[in-house]
């Protein structure tokens, strides 16, 4: 087992170096540069342009810039934002809790509902419940979520007025930020009204972001359950005369959940992608929106730092899933 873990960790190192290189090169390959874009219609003289580029070291040869960047990274320095002149890491940390809070809510919703729906469908295989659930799941799976978000806003916020249109919390609620999670901070501040306001604001973005993972998990759970239910030892358990419910819960579920765990892990990357669209539409102050804006401003150090941090989050989650998978499925780790 230890060897398996070490192996996976070792594989991460070259990948991570590759990611720093990709993040570094990508943003510099983009046409245009931050100085021209910041000046906009007003323009900037060639001398001033050179001066500003030099302030951030963008006039150095690429190799030197990359070396400085990597040395900085090793010291925990992700560089400075060109547009706000603040450290990239602190800018990231100021926004990351918002994305994380939304993503966690979405993944919890998707897992709970998805696993439940999947089990229900598998037990009632072929019934109308199964067909309806899987039909809905397929629609969810096929949904262009940016359009879905617009529809939900039109219906629930504009027409019915049930949910707020955007934002994280009602503006009348104000409390100190400790963890950056509205749900936790509001309770720490002892403000239940603020907590409910935060919940209220989370509903629509959570639904939108959870739509595709929910569908995937429901379908996956159903298939995994059916597969496991079909396997021989279940037959054995049945023949021993155990009650059917016990069979399902004890044997099938535990085995069926192994691939489901992997699926959930893989959805993290999907969630990060979905966050870009969801945050854009709901004005959610997270990193998805921040990345889009920074790309369009050619904010070199933000984009390379942001890409790196996002990739790091995805990789850590994938590694955890891998290890977890190795832990519960002994077949894998001996390979």
């Amino acid at each position: 087992m230890l060897r398996f873990i070490l192996n996976r960790l070792l594989l991460i190192v070259p990948t991570f170096i590759g990611i720093t290189l990709v993040a570094f090169l990508f943003i510099r390959l983009l046409p245009g540069d931050p100085v021209i874009l910041m000046a906009g219609e007003r323009g900037v003289s060639p001398e001033r342009h050179a001066e500003l580029m030099a302030q951030f070291g963008f006039d150095q040869p690429l190799l030197k810039q990359y070396a400085d960047y990597v040395v900085g990274l090793l010291h925990g320095d992700f560089g400075y934002s060109f547009s706000t002149k603040k450290p990239v890491l602190s800018e990231f940390m100021a926004r990351f809790p918002a994305t994380l809070e939304l993503a966690l809510c979405a993944i919890v919703l998707a897992t709970v509902l998805g696993v439940a729906a999947g089990i229900l469908s598998a037990i009632r295989r072929g019934s109308w419940i199964d067909q309806a659930t899987m039909g809905v799941a397929l629609v969810g799976y096929s949904m262009p979520i940016f359009w879905w978000a617009l529809l939900l806003i039109i219906f629930f916020s504009t027409t019915l007025g049930w949910t707020p249109v955007s934002g994280r919390i009602s503006l009348t609620q104000f409390f100190p930020s400790v963890t950056g999670f509205m749900l936790i901070d509001s309770l720490l501040a002892g403000k239940p009204a603020a907590f409910w306001s935060a919940v209220h604001h989370l509903i629509l973005p959570t639904i939108v972001l959870a739509t595709i993972p929910l569908a995937v998990i429901a379908r996956q759970t159903r298939s995994a359950m059916l597969e496991v239910l079909g396997e021989v030892y279940i037959m054995t358990a049945k023949s021993k005369g155990l009650a059917q419910r016990r069979v399902i819960w004890l044997h099938a579920l535990r085995n069926a959940l192994i691939p489901v765990v992997t699926t959930i892990g893989l959805q993290v990357s999907v969630l990060m992608g979905g966050a870009i669209l969801t945050e854009t539409i709901f004005s959610w102050p997270g990193i998805g929106k921040w990345m889009i804006d920074s790309i369009s401003r050619r904010d070199y150090q933000v984009v390379q730092g942001g890409l790196l941090l996002i990739a790091a989050v995805v990789m850590v989650v994938n590694l955890t899933v891998d290890l977890l998978y190795g832990l519960i499925n002994p077949r894998v780790r001996h390979r």
Partner: peptide
């Protein structure tokens, strides 16, 4: 049309 920075320049 082209990228905004290029366009301006």
């Amino acid at each position: 049309s082209m990228e905004w920075g290029e366009y301006l320049a």
